[in-house]
């Protein structure tokens, strides 16, 4: 099998698992919905700056919960099987891609719920949707790799949060800075530059994950 095919096959496997065990997917959707509902009860409809801050914080927690299970669901025996049929690089790339896709869906869901419950504050909804997707991808990449570390250490999502929160700060700060642009009708300069920095960080994380995952993988 060619390399691309292996990655696609592994993503298909994850999708199939997701379809067969739909409770996990709906579990995360329910987590998103109930968190935002509680937030709505607590905050009502906050001003844009608070809205923005809350949105990215909620994304962070959704990401930890959505991504945490991606490495924990595979048992040791099954991991050994994947090891024998696919390379470590294909495996981590497929996980990164799958989690990025999952986070895009979750970001859009939570954006819709935020719009619905916490007030429609966006000036440029299309742009903000794009930023939310980009942000979701960035968060998912970092936390996917940390999930792999936490899974090897036989730990839960709590360790992931400890390991990940300090490391995710630059992405979150960049995202907040970028998303303030979507709230103002004046076009601010530096948007493309900051998006490029974010994309650069994403590429860095992917490269690190591909280089380092083979060392995590073998027992």
């Amino acid at each position: 099998m060619r390399k691309g095919n292996q990655i696609i096959a592994l993503i298909k496997k994850d999708l199939l698992l997701e379809v067969r065990q739909q409770y996990t997917f709906y579990g995360i959707v329910l987590y998103v919905a109930s968190t935002i509902f509680v937030l709505y009860l607590a905050m009502g409809q906050p001003e844009t700056k608070v809205w923005n801050g809350l949105f990215w914080m909620i994304q962070l927690f959704i990401c930890v919960n959505a991504v945490a299970k991606s490495f924990l669901q595979d048992s040791r025996g099954r991991m050994l099987y994947f090891y024998s049929i696919a390379g470590a690089k294909d495996f981590i790339l497929s996980k990164l891609l799958f989690n990025a896709g999952l986070m895009i869906i979750m970001s859009i869901t939570s954006l819709l719920l935020f719009q619905l419950l916490l007030g429609d504050v966006l000036v440029n909804p299309l742009l903000f949707t794009g930023i939310a997707c980009l942000g979701g991808i960035s968060l998912s990449l970092v936390f996917s790799f940390l999930a792999a570390i936490a899974a090897r250490a036989q730990q839960n999502a709590a360790l992931m949060a400890i390991l990940g929160f300090p490391l995710i700060i630059p992405q979150v700060l960049l995202l907040m800075k970028i998303s303030t642009i979507a709230f103002s009708d004046v076009i601010q300069s530096g948007l493309a530059e900051m998006c490029a920095v974010l994309a650069g960080l994403d590429i860095l994380v992917i490269a690190l994950a591909v280089i380092l995952f083979p060392f995590l993988w073998k027992d």
Partner: peptide
Amino acid sequence: IAAVYNIFAYFIYIP
């Protein structure tokens, strides 16, 4: 595992 985290963290911390 600690070495992997150390390397990962360093290369995110410096940028």
